[in-house]
């Protein structure tokens, strides 16, 4: 690799810098789009034809992982490979939190993005994957700014809200997006002297806290995930500041996956145009049933996995 001639847009430095620009670059390309969970090649085709910008290949969608219980692991590489052979848009896959060996396998498989995901059963209760060591970019979930900056410090090239995966309920994604936006705004009005103490309070790397204080946003794209089930849900999180959306169980648990997927793609682009939102929201069949947060015990809540 050649030496960097220009100042980086991102606060990371040294060896991985160019590689990090290329990783964050792919996340930039996904902005304004919908990434969809798919469990086989047929679903992947439906998602791609509907206009998904990427698919997340996983064996079971989050709502089924919830129902089935047991340990949820990285998907079968053969199943991911079949999806890679079927679609030409980027293919993402999930590894367990801290399971760097699963991540190594996914990198060898040449997936385009790895989601170090709380939807799978965590492999390490204390540590996440050291993501700068990989050539493949990572996306991670967060519920607050400190968590987002810790993941970026470890090398995540894209963030997403955790939301509550497989719930069909947008309330947690909204909470996480609003929390992160509020915390970022708060940093922008702090004086320089306050930033180190804030870095200590939220447990985030100081240089990244300074970046957010200066720019008012994360140094990597911030998307929303967890509970998006309708075009209106996609429009809501976009208006709250999400730069793109992940749709998990919401599409293939509904009665009309192809139509719903296409509607969510359009709602993500025209998120602030009520007339277009009305048009794409009309005539859809029933969405997924969904779960109320009070019906989930603390152990059943996936967002509390990772730190």
């Amino acid at each position: 690799m050649s030496e960097s001639k220009q100042a980086s847009n991102h606060p990371q430095t040294e060896a991985g810098e160019e590689n990090f620009t290329v990783k964050v670059g792919l996340a930039e390309m996904l902005k304004g789009g919908a990434i969809m969970d798919v469990t086989d090649a047929e679903q992947a085709k439906i998602a791609e034809d509907a206009g998904a910008i990427a698919v997340m290949a996983l064996e079971r969608i989050p709502s089924d992982i919830r129902k089935d219980g047991g340990v949820a692991r990285m998907s079968d590489p053969d199943m991911i490979r079949k999806i890679q052979e079927t679609v030409s848009i980027p293919v993402m896959a999930k590894c367990r939190i801290g399971h760097f060996a699963e991540a190594q396998i996914l990198e060898a498989l040449e997936v385009d993005f790895i989601d170090e995901s709380e939807v799978l059963t965590p492999a390490d209760e204390a540590n996440h994957v050291a993501k700068h060591d990989f050539k493949v970019p990572f996306v991670c979930g967060s519920t607050c700014l400190g968590e987002a900056l810790r993941r970026i410090g470890e090398g995540a090239a894209m963030m997403r809200t955790k939301g509550e995966a497989g719930s069909g309920n947008i309330v947690e994604a909204v909470r996480h997006m609003r929390t992160i936006q509020n915390e970022m705004k708060r940093l922008t009005i702090m004086s320089k002297e306050q930033l180190m103490s804030e870095a200590k309070n939220i447990g985030a790397p100081y240089d990244l806290v300074c970046y957010v204080a200066e720019h008012g946003k994360l140094p990597v794209p911030n998307f929303s995930a967890g509970g998006i089930a309708t075009p209106a849900d996609a429009a809501l999180v976009r208006q709250l500041g999400a730069e793109a959306v992940f749709v998990g169980s919401g599409i293939f648990m509904s009665e009309d996956p192809a139509a719903r997927a296409a509607a969510i793609v359009k709602a993500t682009t025209y998120y602030d145009d009520p007339e277009t939102l009305l048009e794409v929201s009309s005539g859809l069949k029933a969405g997924m049933k969904g779960i109320l947060m009070q019906d989930l015990s603390p152990e059943e809540r996936l967002a509390s996995r990772g730190w």
């Binding site: 690799m1 001639k5 160019e18 590689n19 620009t21 290329v22 980027p90």
Partner: peptide
Amino acid sequence: GRQVCSFSTDLDLECDAEGLPYQAHFIR
């Protein structure tokens, strides 16, 4: 190829009279 094949490299730009190299990012 896929994202693992994305890369950065220096290019010579014909439209730049000074001929300084340009760092280009190729992503998929």
